[in-house]
Design a protein around this nucleic acid. Structure first.
Lengths: 124, 124
DNA sequence: GACCGCTAGGTGTACGTTGCACCTAGGGCG
DNA sequence: CGCCCTAGGTGCAACGTACACCTAGCGGTC
């Protein structure tokens, strides 16, 4: 299969969308992986791969976009809490801009599709 | 590197966005690959990989979303013209819907980012 | 105590898409 | 002929993603 099949519609969220999501959530407040796993669903994900999420956090940690520290929990296993760094905030700003561009492209798409659909209705 | 690097911002268009673009363009009018290569730029691509585009058209042809035929050109090499099939129009309808959903997610993102940015300005 | 479920974090890996480079071939022109 | 432009196409490696699976702490219950 090249480029998706007919019965399934594999058009999804932008590439590398997870990083911007995590950065935004962390900009809104310090958090830990397991919690972020729930929160990203509000940004368009119906289900997120935990593995990918933890890997993404780890990568951002290594790149200096976020800073993590272990926090022992009173109940349950210890958790790694993440907070945004200055560099991460900068990155978020840039990435929010390019996401806005993508949104603009998509609205252009929708506009042109709507125009077509209306025209199609007139012909009927 | 996992999930993109710091200096470059690799947040791009949705996954499999090329197919919907080509379907929309073909819904607007019969065309051929080389022409579509220019037209997709209006839908958010700054540069499209010709290889990917031709592969995508071929795949959609094999899946029955589009129908192609060779047309000899008076000047220059022959061209393969594509036109949308009924199945392709159906697919376009579905995919336009899911793209609208993605657009909604992105606007949610932007709204939340804006809220944060304003709040940040107040603190300054 | 043994077992089970939930929280929390993590690894291994295969697949699909993408991006880059490169190739064929026809026609116009100096 | 050599060169550029149009038009279509192939090969391949890298990246992102999805899916499965694993460790380990803590609480409750049989």
């Amino acid at each position: 299969m090249i480029g998706g099949s007919t019965d399934e519609v594999p058009v999804g969220l932008p590439r590398n969308y997870l990083r911007p999501c995590l950065l935004l959530l962390l900009a809104e407040g310090t958090s830990h992986g397991y919690e972020l796993l729930d929160q990203v669903s509000a940004l368009g994900y119906d289900r997120v791969d935990p593995g990918g999420l933890y890997r993404c956090l780890r990568a951002m940690d290594e790149e200096g976009l976020v800073h993590s520290r272990w926090e022992p929990s009173t109940s349950g296993p210890a958790r790694r809490t993440y907070e945004l760094t200055a560099e991460g905030r900068e990155w978020l700003h840039v990435v929010a801009g390019s996401l806005a561009e993508v949104a603009r492209s998509l609205s252009t798409y929708s506009r042109r599709y709507q125009a077509l659909a209306e025209q199609h209705d007139l012909v009927r």
